[in-house]
């Protein structure tokens, strides 16, 4: 599944979408950047409440498919700018991480 297909299927909001054709492979949930760096895997979706610019640096280094900001948190403006420059997809949703992860599981993501 591509990020674009994910967005359509789960009704996610695209805040920055420079790379929506990217394939999705699994997901990781966490708000501590060190853990995400060490544990998330290439192609993962990253569900988090962190919306600042260093989230983009981590997503880029781990080569994540997209960041999904949950619970209607907002990205900082400089994070959005940096994501567009670096080709990182930033999505958001009103849902909680657990609810969204359950939806992903039902769809075998």
């Amino acid at each position: 599944m591509t990020v674009k297909e994910l967005v359509d299927q789960f009704d996610l909001e695209v805040v920055a979408g420079p790379n929506l054709d990217r394939e999705v492979d699994g997901a990781y949930i966490g708000d501590l950047l060190s853990n995400v760096m060490a544990r998330a895997e290439q192609g993962n979706l990253w569900l988090t409440v962190q919306g600042h610019q260093n989230v983009v640096a981590v997503a880029l280094l781990v080569e994540l498919a997209a960041v999904i900001l949950v619970e209607d948190f907002d990205y900082e403006e400089n994070a959005v700018q940096r994501a567009c420059q670096k080709g990182v997809n930033l999505l958001k949703t009103r849902k909680k991480s657990y609810a969204l992860a359950c939806n992903f599981c039902e769809s075998k993501i």
């Binding site: 501590l32 060490a38 260093n54």
Partner: peptide, 16 residues
């Protein structure tokens, strides 16, 4: 609050 400072930085460096 930004998700840093969990005390895992140098621990991760040493691990890898």
């Amino acid at each position: 609050e930004m998700g840093f400072g969990a005390g895992m930085g140098l621990v991760n460096v040493k691990r890898y």
